[in-house]
Structures are given as structure tokens and as C-alpha cells.
Write a protein that binds this DNA or RNA. Structure first.
Lengths: 122, 122, 122, 122
DNA sequence: GTGGTCTAGACCACA
DNA sequence: GTGGTCTAGACCACC
């Protein structure tokens, strides 16, 4: 889990996104236990309260489920879960197109630049 | 000029970016006068201090220059100006690739999704 | 016995209340044996420690008594027992009135709403 | 605004309820500004962070709306707002009936006890 | 001054 | 040990 402490985006929201991405990538699966907030806090060198906040946000969004004294788990009965990957991907595509349009770049050039950069980086 | 008041990105930085984008699009040209901070504040429904700060930032970056009593103008002798478009475009591409990689999406599918969405939206 | 695991009210106190209610309803009588904490824990899917704590609390309140090696029993010589029903009922009435007053609802309307809901539910 | 610091119900949720009740009573109206979290914290002798949490919860529920640097206001375009009073009243009635049923008390006696208590208290 | 994030550390109920 | 609330106080962006 990678956090950017200089980003204006709050850490706890970055953490929510990281979990969503891990789900999209298939690294996290429904039913999986995620580390306790205290453990996670040590791993990420972050305050336990910050982790708690991220976890509560995830629960509010229906991503996880909490069992008193047992831990926090990825929900498996949620429709959200199925669609996370495509939704987040679609959002990224939209953002990209919007950014490029804002710079006055035409669709063909968008595709071109993408191809070039992908080739360069292998 | 579009601002997102709920974004974690500071409004004054959003304003700087909007000016850069207008330059990239060719809507603003070297030598153009930009509105006084009071005018701009009314236009955008934003506190004059915020506009001031955005203008200071632009000046600091060498994007604009202020002529006493005459207003703020887009500089034309700046090397930055030439490269704004390609730099911002490259940043958008990088961001897009990073986002998609984070979701475990392969290069071919990135290009595919981009094409599909561009076609859908005309 | 119904427990709400998401209520802020501690589970062991919910259990005490449930026993009191069963007494009020006449489902439990003085002298009745209540299940061992292990049995009860399995029945309610609750940690045995939690049941223990509920039992301790009941004993502290003079509701039950424990006979070594024989189990826990509802006491019958307790003055508390006689008044449980009316006390809890009175508390419920008070709570109701307070809640409704908090909403700015007048006594007549309280009675009216109660009647309507009771009729609707048969 | 009355808080019960000994209640198992978290203070920040009590605060949300108090605001809802004030709305139901008509003491708070759409568009009204509520005290800043720091001011409120002093008034209630509570930590500012606790107030913040209550305010954020209200915003999440669509009760209020926040304007950066200006304060927190009761929303006026929310359907929720219209129905708060009846919803909360209905919830109180349901709770009352459930409590009384739990004690084995019949509908007629519920109404009777309510009437008696209301008369006693004037 | 106003909303908002983060840290640090205490304390509680439950497993 | 695990979730969860509360306090105290720093720091930031914006009004």
C-alpha cells in the first residue's frame, strides 16, 4: 500500500482507494481479513486513528464489514464489489480525456501519446 | 474557468492550472491581460485573497508579470510557456497509466478502453 | 433472546435486560435455572466472557443466585423481582414521553399516534 | 442542546440527534447557520474534534451543507428534512410498543399507562 | 475565524 | 488484541 504524504488528498482517502485498487487487481478477495487498524498503522507509519477513519469510510461505502473484537473483513455480498474495477477504470479514462481536452488535444493525439508513452516505458 | 470546491486540491492551485490550460489551448496568449484579482474574484465567486494567491503563484513560476498600475499580463519571454502544453499532457498520460496499472489493467486494454470511450462520446 | 450487536449498549447489559423482560413476561419464574454461561454463549453466538459478565451483573443486582456446582437460579426472595415489571414499564413510558417532547409533540398527539400504530399492527 | 456523557451512545451521535430534534421542533430551519465546531465545542464543553465528527456525520446524512471557510448550514433542498419529524416520532412509537410488548404488556395497558403518566406530570 | 487532517495517547467493551 | 470514542493540540487552506 503506497501513500503519498505530500498529496493534498487526505491519507485516509488514499487508503480507501488503495484497498479498492487491491480489490480491482484481485489481490484482496471477499471475505479476506484486513490488518487491524493498529497493525496497519505500524506498517504504514501512520497514526492508528487515521487508519480507523479509513476503515470507517470503507464500511460506510459498503466495502467492508466489521465484527466486534474480531476485525474488519471485505464484504462479499455487495454489488459494489463486482463493479469496482470497471467503475474506477472508467473514471480514470474520463479524467484523462477531460484533462487532455482541457489542453486542447484532439482524440487522435490522445491515443497517439498514450501509445508512445506505453512503448517508451515497455 | 471551472473550480471544484470540494476537491482536496487548493483552489488557488486549481486556478493556476486553469490558466496554464487556457495557454495550452491557445485561448490565452503572451501579452494578454488577465482580469484584476477583484474582477476575477467576483467572476469565480471566490475570495479576493484566493485570487491574489493564485496570481502570486503564477508570477513566482514566471508565467505572468505585473506592471504597476496596469495589471497582470501573460509573460512572453518565458521558456516555461513553450513547454506547458507538452508537459501537462505528458503528466496526464502518466497519471492515466499509473491509475490503470493500479487497477491491474494491461496496456492493450488501456488503449482499448480509451478508444471505446472516445467513440461513444463522439 | 434478541441482541443487537451494533447497539452502543453493551451486550452484557442487553442480556441482563432480556432476562428482566422474560421475568416481567412471566416466562422466567423465581427458582428457574438459567443456562450455564457456556451453553448460553453457544446459543447466543457470544463470547463466554460476555455471558459471565452478564451473570455477574445480575447477581450483583440481586436478581439471581449461584449455587456451587448446580448453576445459576432466579432468586425468589428479592424485593426487586416484584417491581421489575412496573419499573421497566415506567421507564419505557418516560423514555417515550421524553422522545416525543424532544420532537415538540404534544401529549394528545402522543396518545393519538400510539393508538393509530397499535390499530395498524393489530 | 443536552448531552448525556454517561450514556453508552456516542456523544457525536447524540449531537446529530439533537440537531434532528431541533429541526423537528422547528427551532432550526433550512438555511440556518449552526455554530462553528470550535464555538459549539466551548458551549457544550466538548472537544472540537467530537463536534467535527458530529457535523461530518450530519453532512453525510444530507442534513447539512458546508461552505469552505464560511460555516455549516442546514440544507434546504433535502427531502429528508421534510420527513424527519414524522420518521423520528414513528420510530419512538415503535420503540415504545416493542419495549412494552417485551414486558408482556397489552395495548390497552400501554395507552392507559401513558395517559396516567401524562396526567401526573401535567 | 472556519472547515478539515493528522498525531499522540487515554480509556472502554468485547473476543 | 480488536473495534471504537474522546481529548488535546498542531498545522493547513480558505474567508
Amino acid at each position: 500500500m503506497q501513500l503519498n504524504f505530500n498529496s493534498p488528498k487526505p491519507i485516509y482517502l488514499q487508503m480507501v482507494d488503495e484497498v479498492k485498487k487491491a480489490l480491482a487487481r484481485g489481490e484482496l478477495k471477499p471475505g479476506d481479513k484486513i490488518p487491524s487498524h493498529k497493525e496497519q498503522a505500524q506498517l504504514l507509519q501512520v497514526n492508528p486513528n487515521t487508519v480507523m477513519r479509513a476503515y470507517q469510510e470503507m464500511e460506510r461505502e459498503g466495502l467492508t464489514e466489521t465484527l466486534r473484537g474480531q476485525g474488519t473483513f471485505i464484504k462479499n455480498d455487495s454489488a459494489i464489489l463486482q463493479s469496482i474495477r470497471s467503475e474506477m477504470a472508467q473514471a480514470a479514462v474520463q479524467q484523462f480525456i477531460e484533462d487532455m481536452r482541457g489542453l486542447g488535444i484532439e482524440p487522435e493525439e490522445m491515443a497517439h501519446m498514450l501509445r508512445v508513452t506505453l512503448n517508451k516505458e515497455g
